[in-house]
Simulated assay, not measured.
Amino acid sequence: MHCQPEHKHQVYIWLKNAHTCLICDEATHASHCVCNVCETELPWLMEQCAICALPLPMEGLICGPCLKKPSAFKQVIAPWTYSFPIDSLISRFKHQARWPLGHMLARLLGQHLQHRFDNSGLTRPDCLLPVPMARKRLRERGFNQALMIARWLSQDLDIAVDEHLLLRPQDTVAQQALDAKSRQRNLLTAFALATSADVTGRHFALVDDVLTTGATAHSLARLLINAGARRVDVYCLARTPKPGA
């Protein structure tokens, strides 16, 4: 006896049908909804600082700020520079709640990370940690973009994500409006660890959308290292170039 009804019509299979590229609106068969042309023309980050991923003229160098004052994190992994159209895509994801754009970028970041795991010896972390958002800004925006990126990466890379280990008990001034020194002072007491946090000997990767001065990442990494973490990396969608570059 057949328990399923007989169906002779063509079935719509999502993965075998053309989608629309989220950048140029042309048809594409890519599952992450960006056509090959647009993906190739994205501002891929090539020559960069071996620690903070700051764009540099040559590969394999360490930038001046990292030489003068080493960061608490080990390495930043970012596929793109924060320039057009990546800056526009991230802004629309964050400020207009265009979640499909964020998902597309997170999928591409996941592919970039998997390639690094497989081919360049990048060590897989034990856990992903989204950068926590100030409560006031979270209420205004309605979601934490870093948390969403971390969840998507967790699914694609099969790496655990801990949404509650890092806390932001104090609301601080928005970092975008501050210079590098003010950003560091602004974050001195901004973050904390959950009381039940187990960090000793573990390798973490902080997840955020954009790395600018690295002050937030450094503050969080220092907090984790001081609590006994073995290593802290940073995964983000884009890295801003040096001002005036």
Results as ranks from 00 to 15, higher is better:
residue 2 H to E: 13
residue 2 H to Y: 15
residue 15 L to F: 14
residue 16 K to P: 03
residue 19 H to E: 01
residue 19 H to P: 01
residue 20 T to I: 15
residue 25 D to Q: 08
residue 25 D to H: 05
residue 26 E to F: 03
residue 27 A to F: 04
residue 28 T to K: 06
residue 32 H to Q: 00
residue 35 C to P: 00
residue 35 C to M: 03
residue 41 E to N: 08
residue 41 E to H: 07
residue 43 P to M: 02
residue 44 W to F: 12
residue 45 L to G: 04
residue 47 E to K: 15
residue 48 Q to M: 11
residue 58 M to W: 14
residue 60 G to M: 13
residue 60 G to H: 09
residue 61 L to V: 05
residue 62 I to A: 08
residue 64 G to K: 07
residue 65 P to C: 07
residue 66 C to R: 08
residue 72 A to M: 15
residue 73 F to A: 03
residue 76 V to C: 11
residue 77 I to G: 10
residue 80 W to A: 05
residue 81 T to R: 07
residue 81 T to F: 01
residue 82 Y to G: 07
residue 82 Y to I: 01
residue 86 I to C: 06
residue 90 I to C: 03
residue 90 I to V: 12
residue 91 S to F: 05
residue 92 R to H: 04
residue 94 K to T: 03
residue 98 R to D: 01
residue 100 P to Y: 00
residue 101 L to D: 02
residue 103 H to C: 08
residue 108 L to M: 08
residue 108 L to R: 05
residue 109 L to S: 02
residue 109 L to D: 01
residue 111 Q to N: 08
residue 112 H to E: 11
residue 116 R to W: 06
residue 119 N to M: 04
residue 120 S to K: 15
residue 120 S to G: 07
residue 121 G to V: 06
residue 121 G to W: 12
residue 121 G to N: 08
residue 124 R to S: 09
residue 125 P to M: 01
residue 125 P to R: 04
residue 130 P to R: 12
residue 135 R to E: 09
residue 135 R to L: 04
residue 139 R to W: 14
residue 141 R to W: 01
residue 141 R to P: 10
residue 141 R to V: 02
residue 143 F to N: 08
residue 143 F to E: 07
residue 144 N to Q: 02
residue 145 Q to K: 13
residue 146 A to I: 14
residue 149 I to F: 03
residue 154 S to Y: 11
residue 161 V to H: 00
residue 162 D to C: 11
residue 162 D to G: 08
residue 162 D to F: 13
residue 165 L to F: 05
residue 166 L to A: 06
residue 169 P to S: 14
residue 171 D to P: 14
residue 172 T to Y: 05
residue 172 T to N: 13
residue 173 V to H: 05
residue 173 V to F: 04
residue 175 Q to I: 01
residue 176 Q to Y: 06
residue 177 A to M: 10
residue 179 D to Y: 11
residue 181 K to Y: 11
residue 182 S to E: 15
residue 183 R to L: 03
residue 183 R to C: 04
residue 184 Q to L: 11
residue 186 N to P: 06
residue 189 T to H: 09
residue 195 T to N: 04
residue 202 R to I: 09
residue 205 A to E: 06
residue 205 A to F: 05
residue 207 V to G: 04
residue 208 D to R: 06
residue 208 D to I: 10
residue 209 D to Y: 01
residue 210 V to E: 00
residue 211 L to R: 02
residue 212 T to I: 12
residue 213 T to Y: 01
residue 219 S to K: 10
residue 221 A to Q: 09
residue 223 L to R: 12
residue 226 N to A: 10
residue 231 R to F: 02
residue 233 D to Q: 07
residue 242 K to C: 07
residue 243 P to Q: 03
residue 243 P to C: 04
